[in-house]
């Protein structure tokens, strides 16, 4: 992993999304999770942490809109030790903090790596936003967009940058589909039409191991990152 010895330990901190840290080590893979309010981003992050924490060194950055609720939920659930969870304040504009002005989030991920030591993976969870919110490539290496069946089964058809371009689309709360009259087949067909070959996962976190498909996708991203 120590590929580049031209960097020195006392060099100034990195400027942007360089793949290596100032000390020459490869930095952690950063995966963003975005999506509308209440779609299950935090629950997915919690489930991913539980599924991956024994095999990977990982940390989480949350972007709460006006509280520390998401960070505190993760702390309460004890999915990771507290020093591995950081909250960024976004000044009422969650999409700005992950797309237009990413400096506070970059600092949070860099500080986690400085303070905890080498990390394999950092999950950056966006504040709940709208269908146009996407992560800057300067902040994350890949992004997951989380929607749910109860938010309306027409969301995949409506498209928008999150649904259309995210590296992984997660349709959450499939267990609710019969109760809210959502047609999963139609959602899958619409998502396929919008996304062509980009992957889609349907999940319910109510079931044991509900996050396994997303966890498997994350493992694949990580394998490509360190290759």
């Amino acid at each position: 992993m120590h590929l580049d010895h031209n960097h020195t330990h006392d060099g100034p901190p990195a400027v942007s999304a360089d793949a290596h840290r100032p000390d020459g080590r490869r930095r952690a893979l950063r995966i963003g999770l975005g999506g509308p309010v209440g779609s299950g981003k935090t629950a997915t992050v919690a489930a991913l942490c539980k599924a991956l924490r024994d095999e990977l060194s990982l940390a989480v950055v949350t972007n709460d809109i006006y509280t520390r609720e998401d960070a505190e939920f993760l702390l309460r659930e004890a999915v990771l030790p507290p020093e591995r969870i950081t909250a960024v304040e976004t000044g009422a504009c969650p999409h700005t903090a992950i797309r237009d002005d990413i400096s506070a989030n970059l600092e949070a991920v860099e500080d986690l790596e400085d303070e905890i030591g080498p990390l394999d993976l950092i999950l950056v969870e966006s504040g709940g936003d709208n269908l146009t919110a996407t992560f800057s490539k300067g902040l994350v290496d890949a992004q997951i967009f989380v929607i749910d069946v109860a938010g309306g089964d027409d969301i995949p058809r409506k498209g928008g940058p999150g649904v259309t371009t995210a590296d992984l689309l997660v349709v959450n709360k499939t267990d609710l589909a019969p109760h809210v009259g959502s047609d999963l087949g139609r959602m899958a067909a619409d998502a396929k039409a919008q996304r062509a070959e980009l992957p889609v996962v349907f999940q319910s976190l109510r079931a044991e191991g509900g996050v396994k498909d997303v966890a498997e996708w994350v493992r694949g991203q990580l394998a490509a990152w360190v290759a």
């Binding site: 000044g91 504009c93 903090a97 237009d100 002005d101 400096s103 506070a104």
Partner: peptide, 11 residues
Amino acid sequence: GRFPAGGHAHS
């Protein structure tokens, strides 16, 4: 004001 230097999160 859109210069990406973090000011948007402060009042």
